[in-house]
């Protein structure tokens, strides 16, 4: 948990980059999310106080876009592609496998804070479907065993205390 003072300082520092934060609200929110991994309510309150943008408007914008999260995500954020090509190539099985091997439902975070996952519209790697992306790296042509191995490898790397390698 971030300390409130610390959180406010970091949020203010982010706001400094924007002379007109209202016009660049989405970029502001993206930057704040980059800092904390999500949009803490206190950070939104801080933005509202410093910019004069109503908290309701901030929440309205933040909740409109799929990218913004109000809950703290896992260290590894898994995005399971639900695009057309993945659907045709049985992408729902990837989601089932991710659910099984992380042990949490979509939108939830594992108790150890390592994994969270969500279904997303399309990752644009259609020729490798079914696909998922973990922290920006795409994994293609997945089946249940591959998903199991990828998740277990990440988990084991963490247990071993090594810097986790997310390279494909």
């Amino acid at each position: 948990m971030e300390l409130l003072v610390d959180l406010q300082q970091k949020t203010s520092a982010t706001l400094q980059k924007y002379p007109e934060p209202k016009d660049a609200l989405i970029s502001v929110l993206q930057d704040v999310q980059e800092v904390f991994g999500y949009l803490p309510e206190d950070a939104l309150r801080c933005i509202a106080a410093e910019t004069g943008i109503a908290a309701s408007q901030l929440t309205g914008v933040a909740s409109f876009y799929a990218q913004f999260r109000m809950e703290k995500p896992g260290k590894y954020q898994i995005m399971v592609c639900m695009g057309t090509a993945c659907h045709v190539n049985k992408g729902e099985r990837v989601a089932d496998a991710v659910r099984e091997f992380t042990g949490v439902e979509e939108g939830e975070t594992t108790p150890d804070g390592l994994f969270s996952w969500e279904e997303v519209a399309c990752l644009g790697c259609c020729s490798l479907s079914p696909v998922m992306m973990i922290n920006g790296t795409a994994y293609g042509k997945l089946d249940k065993d591959k998903v199991k191995k990828i998740i277990n490898d990440l988990r084991n790397a963490e247990k071993g205390g090594e810097g986790a390698c997310v390279c494909s």
């Binding site: 660049a24 989405i26 409109f64 876009y65 997303v120 519209a121």
Partner: peptide
């Protein structure tokens, strides 16, 4: 500018609204 994940922003007036924050 990075979009934030909304299919409707492919529509030009929606895209403009998003660009404006």
């Amino acid at each position: 500018m990075k979009g934030a994940g909304a299919f409707v922003c492919g529509e030009e007036t929606a895209l403009l609204a998003s660009l404006e924050g």
